[in-house]
Every structure is written in C-alpha cells, then in structure tokens.
C-alpha cells in the first residue's frame, strides 16, 4: 500500500526537511507506545545538535522509566542514585563550569524521593537545567500513586481514587521552585500536539542559552501521558490529559528571566 503513494521524485536527499537526529543512538526506545519520553528525548537532542553542544554536554539520568536515557542519548551521561540527580549535577557543574549540564527526571524521582535535593539545588541557584517529566503516576513500577497524582484519580494503590483527606494533595513542584530566588527560568510545557512540542523545544533551547550566562537554574516541567499506567490508549490518554491534568497543571511560563509571571490559568477545586 505504501508504494502506491510513494513520490519518488520528491523522495530525494536534498528535499529532506525532517529526520531523526543523529544524537539519538540508532536503537529502538524502550518506552511504551505513545509515551512522551521519546518526544522529549528527541527535542532535547535536536536542541543540542542545533546548538552544537554534543561534546560539551553532560546529562544526568534518573531512576524511573527514563533510567536508560544514557543508552539512547549519544552524549556524556551519568546515572544518579534515586532522586539525587540535582546533587550530582551540582558537583559536575562546579567542577566543570564550562560544560552544559542537565538532569532529566520523572515525578517519582524529582517530586518524591528527591524533593530535598531539588529544592536545595534550586535555592542555591546552581547553573544547570532541570527537565521534569510529570505524568502523575509511578509509571515504571506499575502505576502506583505519586505525589503528583490528581485528587480522585484512580491508580493501583488508590483504586477508589485519591482521597485528599487521607492521602493529601498533589504537589505542584514547578510553582514551588518558582518562589525560590535561585531559579531563573521556570516553565511548564507538554508534548501531546505539534504546537506543544514546538513550544517545548523553544523552552529547552532557552534553558541551555541561560546556562551560558550563568544566571541560575532553568526548570522545565513537561506534563506527559502514561497510557499504560492510566490504562488508556495513547490518543485517549492525551485527551484525558487535556481535560484533567491541564486545569490543575496549567501550561505556560511561570518565571522568565528571574521575574515571576502572573499565572493566567484558573485553578481547579479539590
């Protein structure tokens, strides 16, 4: 069927407008179909390729679904203990101030076990980039309730929905660290539509450009789906994310160039 609509006169090397970047190793990603991790990996590597930073960048991979990020990214990477990626990145950046350092963490890593490291690294104003993938669930271990799980959201450890009287309220890490003086650029993005992906890529580029000026932490939260953990198809989970996650985690910049921006989105009643 594919050969029927192949346009061989267009299919030439000089007409390529988009192809998978060479900074991603040529091997299949280990993520579930439709997972936002793959898109964020690709945007990150494309940004580094465009800025020409392949040999000057050191990444820190977390514990979680993206623990194997060092297998896919063709740059220097280190694996940190669970939640301790900001501490490791602090050491790398202080030893090697001319290198570009980023951490890539999920919500179980950054917002649960690594809350102390995250907040103190942001408060010290280290000069690296933090990328935070928030899907509201512990995806790798089988969909348990995470600190970022929405109220009344069903997970395998809260089968009747998250009861906020017993289990507390979701943690908005991005709003939290935006209050600290050490952060310079704080934003929340998504990767479910083409326009959202383009905005995320711009945010990643801005974060790496901030590292050149040594102005403080750039913190990018990416609201992502977890279709396996949420028990939905990828397209359904993207729709569910738009309807339920975005009212609670509104997209947009929260702090630009060290100045808080007034959030325009509404908050949801819990």
């Amino acid at each position: 069927m594919e050969e029927q609509f192949a346009k061989l006169d267009i299919r030439k090397n000089e007409n390529i407008v988009y192809k998978r970047t060479d900074l991603l190793v040529d091997r299949p990603l280990s993520y579930c179909p439709g997972c936002g991790h793959g898109t964020v990996h690709r945007m990150l590597m494309e940004t580094l390729e465009e800025m020409g930073l392949q040999d000057k960048t050191i990444g820190v991979s977390p514990v979680g679904c993206s623990v194997l990020a060092y297998d896919f990214m063709n740059i220097d990477m280190l694996g940190a203990a669970h939640g301790r990626a900001p501490a490791l990145a602090t050491a790398i950046k202080r030893m090697w101030p001319d290198r570009f350092v980023f951490t890539y963490q999920g919500d179980g890593d950054l917002a649960a076990i690594g809350t102390a490291e995250t907040i103190h690294a942001c408060n010290r104003g280290e000069h690296f980039t933090m990328i935070f993938i928030n899907n509201g669930i512990y995806g790798m271990t089988g969909g348990q309730m995470a600190p970022t799980t929405l109220p009344n959201m069903r997970t395998s450890t809260s089968p009747y929905g998250r009861d906020t009287n017993i289990m507390g309220f979701p943690l908005k890490m991005t709003e939290l660290v935006a209050q600290l003086p050490g952060t310079y650029y704080v934003t929340r993005q998504a990767v479910h539509t083409p326009s959202a992906v383009r905005k995320t890529k711009k945010a990643i580029r801005k974060a790496f450009e901030n590292q050149k000026n040594k102005t403080g932490i750039s913190f990018i939260e990416v609201v992502s789906n977890c279709n396996s953990g949420w028990k939905m198809t990828p397209v359904q989970s993207n729709k569910w994310m738009e309807e339920n996650m975005f009212p609670f985690y509104p997209l947009g910049d929260i702090k630009i160039d060290g100045v808080l921006v007034t959030p325009k989105a509404e908050t949801v009643k819990v």
Binding site: I16, V17, R20, T21, R42
Partner: peptide, 8 residues
Amino acid sequence: PDGVITVY
C-alpha cells in the same frame, strides 16, 4: 515519540 518518520 520514536522518531520513525522522515519528511520530504
């Protein structure tokens, strides 16, 4: 997510 599409 897997970057399998090349565009001309």
